[in-house]
Computed example of a mutant assay.
Amino acid sequence: MDYQNLLITTKGRIQYITINRESKLNALNKQTLQELHAAFTAAFNDAEVGGIIITGAGPKAFVAGADIAEFAGVNIEGGRAIAQDGQTSVFDVIANGNKPVIAAVNGFALGGGLELAMACHIRIASDNAKMGLPEVTLGLIPGYGGTQRLTQLVGRGKALEMIMTADMITAAEALQSGLVNHVVFQDDLLPKAEEILNKILARAPLALASAIKAVNAASIDGVNGFEVEIAEFANCFGTEDFTEGVAAFIGKRKPEFKGK
């Protein structure tokens, strides 16, 4: 696909997906969401890609939100379609991906931008980051999974406070509440993301995919997460990577996993 709003680069087994609308503070318009769907789908299906780091171009914003101009004149059914399409084609695709995704949050992560970061498996923020869900100031609520994922990450009370006040929080506050995993100086943001992802990529790829699936099952209504864990644990025994991992452990050497 010929991307107009994304920059796709690779560094070893790491793929960078950079939202490249700096003049618009990397706002998520319809085309950008379509490109994100294509980029993540391709990355998850590319055997050469071990994991993904997503970030925003420039120092001011990860993603400052959705492109609100596209919401003007939309009716109830149109609003339902916006939320449904976004969640199904982008945010849920990322959250349920078979490879680790780290959000490197620089500057503003507001509305759909924070929802995008929350769909990722790990979040790292620069010390200048500001995060929030300001949708109620527009007469809306978060529509890309924000009410659900924020509650899972920070708890019901904090989620309701953030959503109903529409206040932004600092990177330090996000770290304290569990919204992000790490806060670093701005120049250290991408190196820290690479450090964590490279450590993850030294582990067994199929086991990583199973871990993501099992952890996600904890928040799916009607699904017994313990049963999913048991099934995924069992599946690992049928992989070549498990055989290699045990052999390496017994032989006191580093394993050489192949994702098989």
Rank of each mutant, 00 (worst) to 15 (best):
A159M: 09
M118K: 04
V105D: 00
Q87E: 11
C120A: 15
M168D: 08
E115W: 04
T137S: 14
A159T: 09
M168Y: 08
D167E: 12
G111K: 05
D85F: 10
P100N: 09
Q176N: 14
G145F: 04
G97S: 05
A119S: 15
G146T: 01
T170R: 10
V90R: 03
L133T: 03
A103F: 05
N96V: 04
L114W: 05
A129P: 07
G145T: 00
R149L: 09
D127V: 13
K158N: 13
V180F: 07
L110S: 06
L133R: 00
A174I: 06
G97D: 04
S89G: 01
G157Y: 14
N96A: 07
A172T: 12
L140R: 14
A125M: 14
G86S: 02
I141H: 14
P100M: 07
T165Q: 07
A95F: 06
G86Y: 02
D85Q: 13
Q148M: 12
V154N: 07
L138E: 15
I163G: 08
A104C: 11
D85P: 00
V93S: 10
V90E: 00
A172V: 13
G113A: 02
I102C: 04
H121M: 09
M118C: 03
V90I: 02
E135A: 10
L110H: 01
C120R: 11
M164N: 13
E135P: 01
V101L: 10
P142V: 03
A174D: 06
E135C: 04
A159C: 10
F91R: 00
Q176W: 05
Q152N: 14
D167Y: 09
A171N: 09
S89H: 13
Q152M: 12
E115Q: 11
D92F: 09
G157P: 00
I124L: 14
L138I: 09
A103W: 00
L175R: 06
G86T: 00
A95R: 11
L150H: 07
G113E: 01
Q176S: 15
E173I: 12
G155M: 09
A109Y: 01
P100W: 07
Y144T: 02
K130W: 11
G155V: 00
N128A: 11
R149D: 04
V136Y: 13
K99Y: 07
A103P: 05
T151N: 15
M168T: 12
F91Y: 12
I124S: 12
L179T: 02
L110W: 04
V180I: 15
G112A: 06
A172Y: 15
A109R: 01
G113H: 02
I94T: 04
L140C: 10
E173W: 11
A166I: 08
S89F: 01
F91P: 01
L140G: 06
G139A: 02
P134Q: 00
T88Y: 08
F91C: 01
M164K: 13
L179S: 03
A103H: 01
K99P: 08
G97V: 06
G111Y: 08
G139T: 04
V136M: 13
G107Y: 03
